[in-house]
Nucleic acid binder design. Sequence first.
DNA 1: CCGAAACCTGAGCATCCGCTCACCACTGAG
DNA 2: CTCAGTGGTGAGCGGATGCTCAGGTTTCGG
Lengths: 328, 328
Amino acid sequence: MPVGLNPDEHELLARIAHRSYVDARTQEQIAEEFALSRPKVGRLLERARATGVVDIHIDTPRGLDLGLEDRLAEVFGLRHAIVAPAAAEPAEQRALVGRSAARYLERRLADGQRVAVGHGRDLAALAAAFREPTATGCVFVSAMGGSPSVDAPTNPNEIARVLADAADGTAHSLYAPAYVADGQVRDQLRRQDAVGGVFDLAATAALALVGIGGTDDECTMVRSGCLSAAEIARLRARGAVGDVLGTYLDAAGAAITAPHSERVMGLSLTELRNIPAVVAVACGPEKPLAILGVLRAGIVDALVVDEPNARAVLNLQSGARADRAQES
Amino acid sequence: MPVGLNPDEHELLARIAHRSYVDARTQEQIAEEFALSRPKVGRLLERARATGVVDIHIDTPRGLDLGLEDRLAEVFGLRHAIVAPAAAEPAEQRALVGRSAARYLERRLADGQRVAVGHGRDLAALAAAFREPTATGCVFVSAMGGSPSVDAPTNPNEIARVLADAADGTAHSLYAPAYVADGQVRDQLRRQDAVGGVFDLAATAALALVGIGGTDDECTMVRSGCLSAAEIARLRARGAVGDVLGTYLDAAGAAITAPHSERVMGLSLTELRNIPAVVAVACGPEKPLAILGVLRAGIVDALVVDEPNARAVLNLQSGARADRAQES
DNA sequence: CCGAAACCTGAGCATCCGCTCACCACTGAG
DNA sequence: CTCAGTGGTGAGCGGATGCTCAGGTTTCGG
């Protein structure tokens, strides 16, 4: 029961709340009935809500924590944050994140929008769960190169195709590897019409859909053969915590620069920043630092993650803020 | 959890409800966020309420049953129905009803209103609990004669005085007995300025405050000496179930007529009907039929009763309706 | 006892919300 | 395949709501 309220006041608030919420009377009618002014009734109703005399409870589907999403969006300045319920099995967890991301994307897509598509198991899970959205005529474009095993479901081309199929739209594939030998080769490749044209389409997309990769030896880049274990180790040594479209970032959100960054066949951070909306999807226990780095880079507009990552990232960030506060 | 809702729909309703009720966003902002039209968001919120995804609970003070009040008001066409919580002890019950009635009257009184006042233990309890209302300059007028023991706290004069004191208003006393020998004496008395003037004041009051008397041998009329046990028994034999200002009614709400009705020194039912608002107060286990009769007479605008009576009266009425339905 | 500050109050106004209505897509029967 | 019926959708509008602000009252401290 509400505290700091005398019984008469409590009764009045309950009566007025009853009229308002149960009988759906207008504030004016209630004012009339209780011989009060209309604004006063409004204030009493507000007070009833504030003191808990009226308790509005929302039956959230099991596992969904909307407050957590709000905090995530607030702390990192995101437009949308979607937190999928926690799951015991990694595969199940990825499916849940994929499903959440799919529902989100279905809502978010607008007619005729072009979508730049990244790679990874999380985006593959999104694609697998994706159903026909309300929007029509959408175009899905690979935003980065592929891995040696070209038909793997985690390749951008494959993901773009699956999405286009489900959305009854079209797909543009990028026929290039994720990494080339050096910047010179990259520039040369991008000058090819078949490659550069797709890059341009991706760079001017209305929306980018990206995974967040890790820097462990089991990450997608290594498993798919895009990078060697030695290369990943070198990136780790330079402070890399994760990647977006092949560009690696440190924990502060800064890009790991040349020579590695010049070998990437994927939209750069600058190009990504020019896309109006970047949707990032991530899950898995190895990801908190990677997500943190990407969020701090300020390129992400919407984030879809599993609950453990959401909590972990928030803890890392608030810990960092506490540290800074202590220093000063 | 809500039934008949698929999980995706449930999640969407919960998300939208969260934005609306927790984050206090406007429907337009929500529509923007979820790529829906504004009316659609309104409909979804309505649906969320209907399906129980949002559950609005009102913390009612212990013992208060606002739904019961609503039914009472609905069934008998009352403007207000106030039900005081049930109590174990009769004295406690009367105090609770008196308190509820006092709070109600304090709210209801408007500046300068004249109030016609009846008698009885229930009104005495009201007067005892009465505190200064917001309205000022109110006038309290006895609407019926008194009992032989003139200073008893249940006499109209005494009740009017207490109310006037508390409200910082004025009181007009009626110096006449509740019953006289016959109609001739009554008319004669009412022609006296000191008596007739007060009657006129009472008859043109903005509000009447009446108790509902029973017809048992322990009723106020008998206990105060206004009527003898024999007289009450005769009234019972004629079908009387209760009284208002000394006028007895049967269970259908019709007045018991002459000769008894002509001996009353109190506002008649007709006079009462001309008063814009009649507030009746009643409590006690012997009262259900009396209350029923008075309510059926259609003179009452607002009723204050204890919970047992409220339930009993509703049961009696719905039983009667069922009977009539069965006949036809 | 007096002054000032804090609070509460109700008028006026801009915004928000629910309702009505015409329109359209989908469905099922002919 | 056609067409009436049904359920859902968004425009437009009038009423309802929340907010701001000036005025008045209470309650402190001096």
